[in-house]
Design a binder for these strands. Structure first.
Length: 601
RNA sequence: CGGGCUGUGGCGCAGUUUGGUUAGCGCACUGGUCUGGGGGACCAGGGGUCGGAGGUUCAAAUCCUCUCAGCCCGACCA
């Protein structure tokens, strides 16, 4: 470490900022950096188009720069955080037996066609052709490639396998946004488990669940595991790790008194029972001129409260016109309908399509006496009677409708979106809806890919078996952004110790004071000796600039060495998070700072 | 893909409605003097195809047409 100390020795008289190779003996060392030689382009103002706190601060702090929409350059400071996050993920996946790979980012179309996803992925996959005209894709995930490799497995004795990589993924997001939170090119840790049977898959899944808890704990992210939709790709269990943040894009149902947590795409609630007035009403047609909305129908003569209305939504599922029925006061959740129908593509029907299918325009639609059209009906309508709904003739509605008697329902499904304040399905307490960032997602794939890609191993009886798979992802860059979202204040970032670009910032206020510089160097040496990372602010700048930048980039601990305190034999120690400064004795500061830092890490 | 908005130096903006000298301002940057514990002052500088193309005009950052890019809301999204 003496060598390190000398490599970074600041030569008195050298102008700060002079960093030409020819006149500096400075040799790069990952754990130590002089600010005067570093590329840390801090900005006083955030770019006007930055909205999310993490976006603003990561740009202002010189961690990232946008190249174009959804593509960011990681600057040295940003890369250090990114790599520390990746390393934590790597260590925890290794700890459950993961083996790291590095796979091609560019894939032949053939494997995507084999899995069936060449068509399914649609516009979200970047596609290109090579000079020979062969179709290629930039990998958005790596089930296909890993599955292709897994065809080299031949015996049950080789299972289980747990494979992973940390690699760039490419997704042509329709709307990249919020800095690193939603991008089109990003590093992701994705692991895949291969097991002979469901019990093995359970083990791999649970191991990941525990590993993820440890990872997010080490990242200082308060991530809650929530029940999630498996998405279009199916799967029997799916858990997302969600970090509460206004910059997020998912809504999560959180029960205040038990541990029920679910994505609104999956979660449900208890509904207050509704008592319908009469059971044997007959269906009656009545005029409702100009009435087009649930609200209007509430107050019209012969109408009813929303709770007694049937909302008829005309959707197009994979090109087929379909009806989704809900209680008048409920909202449709598209993902739920997707999951329940098994469709890949979903969109609301146009007004013309609705008219063609039902003979009326939206606002007067209903499912009574409709046949030949698939009808998905929300569970909340089971057994309901005396309902009001559209008559499939503009300006007319029906009342006295008994759902089960009068409507030909193909499937009863949970397709409504739970609202805040509804009762927890487990304990009945009030549910909150919390905006979250999806930081990780684990799920059981089953045999979809192993079947498609032709993976088989012989079992103990010599019979061919198709292994079952699990898939587990964590976005590294998104985790960096999520940490920034959760750990900042008005002045800037406050990196958790384990992912901080540097552990200690030594702010030297008078860079021409050789006593101050040599004190900085001795503290640096003490930190380097135990493998901690130190940034020395040796810029010839005014104190105000240095303090502001220090708070902006958010190094967890700062040692300030200034002639004013130094003349009294003192230096200042300030944790970024509290901002509370403690005076330390100059002579012993190296060891006391080291002790303080190690004690609180 | 629908709705809204924005492109002027590295960042933040003014100027555009009503066309008219050399396109300005703050920050940042370079040299200098002073200063020296919370984004300091002064002096002197460098840096801009006004997103792009076409058009109207004696004259275009400004008007017209097309186009590209970016942002926000929604849709969408392992």
């Amino acid at each position: 470490m003496v060598a390190v100390f000398q490599q970074i020795h600041h030569r008195p008289g050298m102008r700060s900022g002079s960093n030409r190779r020819g006149d500096s003996p400075w040799v790069s060392y990952r754990g130590a950096m002089r600010w005067s030689a570093a590329f840390i382009p801090t900005l006083r103002d955030a770019p006007a188009d930055a909205e999310a706190a993490s976006h603003k601060l990561l740009v202002r702090g010189g961690f990232i720069r946008q190249l174009h929409a959804g593509h960011y350059s990681l600057l040295p400071l940003g890369l250090r955080v990114h790599e520390k996050v990746a390393q934590i993920v790597r260590e925890e996946i290794d700890a459950i037996g993961g083996q790291e790979f590095l796979l091609p980012a560019m894939h032949p179309a053939s494997i995507w066609k084999q899995s069936g996803r060449w068509d399914v992925m649609g516009d979200e996959m970047f596609r290109l052709q090579d000079r020979g005209g062969a179709d290629l894709a930039l990998g958005m995930t790596h089930e296909e490639v890993f599955s292709h490799l897994a065809t080299s497995l031949h015996s049950y004795k080789e299972l289980p396998q747990l494979w992973y990589q940390i690699q760039m993924k490419f997704r042509d997001e329709p709307r990249p946004k919020s800095g690193l939170l939603r991008v089109r090119e990003f590093a992701m840790k994705d692991s895949y488990s291969f097991d002979l049977d469901d019990a093995g898959l359970d083990v791999a899944f649970d191991a990941h669940h525990e590993a993820y808890v440890k990872i997010f704990d080490r990242l200082a992210l308060q991530a809650m595991p929530v029940q999630a939709s498996s998405g279009a790709m199916g799967g029997s269990a799916s858990v997302e790790f969600m970090v509460a943040s206004p910059a997020g894009e998912d809504d999560v149902l959180v029960c205040g008194s038990c541990d029920y947590r679910a994505n609104v795409e999956r979660g449900t609630s208890q509904l207050e029972p509704v008592v319908d007035s009469s059971i044997d009403e007959t269906v009656e047609r009545f005029p409702t001129p100009g009435v087009r909305t649930i609200t209007e129908l509430e107050s019209v003569d012969g109408g009813a409260n929303a709770i007694n209305q049937i909302k008829t939504m005309v959707m197009v599922l994979d090109g087929e016109v379909t009806l989704a029925l809900l209680r008048g006061d409920h909202q449709l959740n598209l993902q739920k309908l997707l999951d329940n129908s098994g469709a890949i593509e979903i969109r609301p029907a146009t007004s013309d399509e609705a008219f063609e299918a039902l003979g009326a325009h939206p606002g007067s639609l209903g499912a009574v006496a409709v046949s030949g059209i698939k009808v998905f009906c929300d569970l909340s309508l089971e057994g309901r009677t005396g309902m009001v709904t559209g008559a499939n003739e503009d300006d007319w509605h029906l009342r006295g409708v008994s759902v089960e008697r009068d409507i030909e329902v193909n499937s009863w499904v949970d397709i409504r979106e739970v609202q805040a304040g509804e009762a927890c399905v487990d304990c009945g307490a009030k549910l909150e809806v919390i905006r979250c960032i999806e930081a990780g997602h684990i799920f059981k794939l089953g045999r979809k890919y192993s079947t498609a890609m032709g993976i088989t191993v012989l079992d103990a009886q010599g019979k061919a078996q198709t292994p079952t798979m699990g898939s587990y992802g964590i976005g590294i860059g998104r985790a960096v952004a999520a940490i920034a979202e959760n750990h900042h204040d008005d002045a800037g970032l406050c990196w958790p110790f384990d992912v901080a670009p540097y552990h200690l910032l030594i702010t030297v206020l008078d860079v021409d004071d050789s006593q101050a510089m040599s004190l900085a160097e001795s503290v640096l040496a003490a930190f380097s000796a135990v493998g901690l990372d130190v940034l020395v602010d040796d810029r010839d700048a005014r104190p105000g600039v240095k303090f502001a930048d220090a708070e902006l980039i958010g190094i967890p601990y700062r040692l300030t060495i200034g002639s004013r305190s130094l003349s009294k034999g003192q230096v200042e120690f300030t944790p970024r998070r509290t901002g509370e400064t403690q005076m330390l004795d100059q002579a012993t500061c190296a060891s006391s700072v080291l002790d303080a830092v190690l004690a609180t890490r």
